[in-house]
Computed example of a mutant assay.
Amino acid sequence: MNKKFIAFLLCGLIPILSLPLSAQTPSDSSRLKPAPYAIGLQLGSTGIGLQAARVLSKDARWVGRVGVSYFSYDQVLRVKAGEGKLNITPDLVVGIALASVKWHPFKRNQLFVTGGAGYTWRPDLRANVIPEGNVKFGGLQIAEENAGVINASLRWNSVLGYAGFGYGRSTPIRRLGFAVELGCYYIGSPKVDLQYTGFLETTTIDEQLPVIQNNLRGYRFLPSLQFLVSYGLFRK
């Protein structure tokens, strides 16, 4: 995620999150409590998902939750390479199951911090590259029949760590609740796998794979921005 966008988002959110809860009077706050359970629909950078939450403490400042989210992308990208093109078919699936705990540090404010662990059943990014026409690699003109096919993948850890903060309740005081959350998954350093035919078989690219993998060590985090609509259950 673009660093300038994250800074802009934080500058906009922090003043809002610091405001006291004004949608209800003091008497409402003392009389109404968040629902003990809730289900929710989330939408964000890791796709669409479902979430279930339960209040863990009498003052409702501790909340446990479990959820799952899913996102996929496989649209063909066509990149010009000399006189020809490279047809790149990505196979990106972001499927995450997450269990976490939220803590509201202030009794009359919906600001929260959260942490937990998750699991992804597709911890990789795959791509298939097929040339079309005469293409150019590093200044070399290569005929289509000699270019071959490239199958590449980046693989991360299946077990993830998560930390974040946001504003809103997972179990709403009213029947419906809304929340926004900004966080980050720790996914570990990616491992590179490269399979190919054609022109690349005559090169020493295999010797460069450790260098490529080392240069990708910084891609150990997956930012997450989520919006949640929750529905309270079993209200007394």
Rank of each mutant, 00 (worst) to 15 (best):
residue 194 L to T: 08
residue 162 Y to L: 01
residue 196 Y to G: 14
residue 211 V to G: 10
residue 188 G to R: 03
residue 180 V to E: 02
residue 185 Y to M: 12
residue 183 G to S: 04
residue 171 T to S: 06
residue 199 F to P: 01
residue 212 I to H: 02
residue 188 G to H: 12
residue 207 E to N: 15
residue 187 I to S: 00
residue 166 G to D: 10
residue 171 T to H: 02
residue 166 G to I: 02
residue 153 S to T: 07
residue 206 D to T: 14
residue 181 E to R: 00
residue 195 Q to I: 06
residue 157 N to C: 02
residue 199 F to R: 13
residue 208 Q to I: 06
residue 160 L to Q: 02
residue 155 R to L: 09
residue 196 Y to M: 13
residue 158 S to Y: 03
residue 199 F to I: 02
residue 208 Q to G: 11
residue 193 D to Q: 15
residue 170 S to L: 06
residue 153 S to W: 05
residue 167 Y to L: 10
residue 172 P to R: 07
residue 191 K to Y: 13
residue 173 I to C: 07
residue 171 T to K: 01
residue 213 Q to K: 10
residue 201 E to F: 13
residue 169 R to W: 05
residue 194 L to G: 14
residue 193 D to S: 11
residue 195 Q to W: 04
residue 167 Y to A: 15
residue 197 T to I: 08
residue 184 C to K: 06
residue 165 F to A: 05
residue 161 G to V: 00
residue 157 N to K: 04
residue 212 I to R: 01
residue 194 L to S: 13
residue 165 F to D: 00
residue 176 L to I: 04
residue 192 V to A: 07
residue 201 E to W: 11
residue 170 S to E: 14
residue 199 F to Y: 09
residue 183 G to E: 00
residue 156 W to G: 04
residue 164 G to S: 08
residue 207 E to G: 12
residue 176 L to Y: 04
residue 174 R to D: 01
residue 197 T to N: 12
residue 174 R to I: 01
residue 186 Y to L: 14
residue 182 L to V: 04
residue 167 Y to I: 02
residue 201 E to G: 05
residue 171 T to F: 04
residue 174 R to L: 15
residue 157 N to R: 06
residue 177 G to H: 01
residue 153 S to E: 11
residue 192 V to M: 13
residue 179 A to G: 14
